[in-house]
Amino acid sequence: MNAYKELIKGLWRENPIFRMLLGMCPTLAVTTSVQNGLGMGLASTFVLVCANTVIAAIRNLIPGKVRIPCFIIIIAGFVTLVDLLLEGYAYSLHGDLGIFIPLIVVNCMILGRAEAFASKHPIGISIIDGIGMGAGFTLGLVVLGAFRELLGNGTLAGIALGIEQPILMMILPPGGFLALGLLLGLMNHADRYMARRNRRDYPAPPEFDCRHCVICSWGGSRKAADGGKS
């Protein structure tokens, strides 16, 4: 098993936000500024690493039938711990993130890593997976936060950049969807560009590919439209 590979997969190839589209609730709700994104990302990373560690440690003791409730109890425990710690030691951040701290419990990314990785791998590699995925999640939130804060408020990490008329909508709820969509598009474009430069095929990840779907005509006509290249 390649530890380095497990560590960096979360940053781009399996990024929880931009690739797996997990944890969309905090992603869209709290990324109105760099600071909020970073705080949320670090809090989630802490929960993810702790939950991965404990779940990997007791993975052989938990019967398969009750594994999901057990995982959720463990995750909820760590989330409550983070909530208490933040209120005690980072009061204003706790106020800014508000309800979204307790809601880390229902972040599918954390349950997803527990189910897909920690419950099947030893402790060491599970911790690395947690750190990598957490870093990817944090990176995603910070990038989204920076993008929205810059366009919507004219500041970056609280520093005014002298933008006269920011696009207010970008820090309102619709801005979250717009920013996420734009960044997803950019990321796919970058992947496709790299693939073309290296003369490789760019295979869209099967779950995000719409070729197999016949609901809209796009799936059928796409092959013809780009000359069968993709």
Binding site: I62, P63, V66, P69, C70, I73, I74
Partner: peptide, 8 residues
């Protein structure tokens, strides 16, 4: 199952 869940 009951014991594991309760203990957790």
């Amino acid at each position: 199952l009951i014991i594991v869940l309760t203990v957790t």
